[in-house]
Design a protein around this nucleic acid. Structure first.
Length: 262
DNA sequence: CGTGGCTCCTGGCGGC
DNA sequence: TGCCGCCAGGAGCCAC
């Protein structure tokens, strides 16, 4: 699930549901998702406090408490968030369950346990220690050109490298390259300045459109490849069947007609 | 630096 | 139907 548009949607969801409410209970249902913090400490730092602000960097959500510390949520492949009243709505994949004084709950689900829950007093320091690159929405054109300079790797692994640009994952990288008409295995040093600019513009456009659609592919424009990114999927610009290849172990969908390797 | 393999997990689905 | 292997929107680590 969670690449930048999904995470941004979850961030806004937390912002509209869970701020400025007293936390009366905190349950950690699986300690595997905890990163460098004990169950007891998380409970201690949250209970009887409130969330006051949300922030996102790449695929991470930071939730500030009234004690000026930040709860950090990372989602891995299968994480998401839900705010609800009836505990019957809770799933077996709940890893963190927060209860507010209005008796509503905020649950962090994560089926595959690849996500992480953490805490920090200093989010900038956390971002630095994780060596995360600039958030994709804050990336400027000159910065992007610098990232592309003197590189010889295939374009796709660079787009999903969180150390360089934070927020783009396997799915949205495919979308950006499809919109740019570029084969995902194209070597960066073979890309013209015009193509570099196309990629940059499409990063912005794809992410912004996806955020407006609340990261729900059902709401995506017809020209997007993401809704077709499945077995036997066809190119939205024509009707040719999409191809899949593995790039650094990640399944990559592309159109063999509109994304030719030059 | 770039690439590829392995690992952490759980669960759904295609294929036989 | 039953079972098995493969695959999944992430990412760290290691070897070459």
């Amino acid at each position: 699930m969670p690449e930048l548009p999904n995470v941004e949607t979850l961030k806004k969801y937390i912002g509209t549901t869970s701020l400025n409410k007293k936390i009366i209970n905190v349950e950690i249902k699986n300690t595997k998702i905890l990163e460098n913090i004990s169950k007891e400490k998380i409970i201690h730092r949250l209970k009887r406090n409130k969330f006051v602000h949300t922030y996102r960097h790449g695929k991470y959500i930071f939730i500030k408490t009234n004690r000026a510390t930040w709860l950090i949520l990372h989602f891995g492949m299968t994480g998401y968030i839900k705010y609800f009243k009836n505990l019957d709505d809770e799933s077996s994949h709940t890893r963190l369950l927060i209860t507010f004084d209005n008796n509503y709950h905020l649950a962090y689900y994560n089926q595959r346990l690849f996500g992480k829950i953490s805490f920090t007093n200093n989010k900038e320091k956390y971002i630095t220690q994780k060596t995360l690159g600039v958030d994709a929405l804050n990336l400027d054109y000159n910065g992007f050109k610098e990232l592309m300079a003197n590189r010889r790797s295939k374009i796709k692994p660079i787009l999903i490298n969180q150390q360089l640009i934070s927020g783009i994952g396997n799915i949205y990288a495919d979308e950006v390259l499809f919109q740019s008409g570029i084969h995902p295995e194209t070597k960066i040093n073979n890309l013209s300045p015009k193509k570099i600019k196309d990629i940059y513009m499409n990063i912005k456009e794809v992410l912004q459109i996806a955020i407006k659609a609340k990261a729900n592919p059902d709401n995506f424009p017809d020209k997007f490849i993401i809704p077709h990114r499945k077995r036997k999927g066809v190119c939205p610009k024509g009707n040719e069947e999409l191809k899949t290849i593995k790039i650094n172990g990640r399944t990559t969908y592309f159109c063999p007609v509109h994304q030719k390797l030059e």
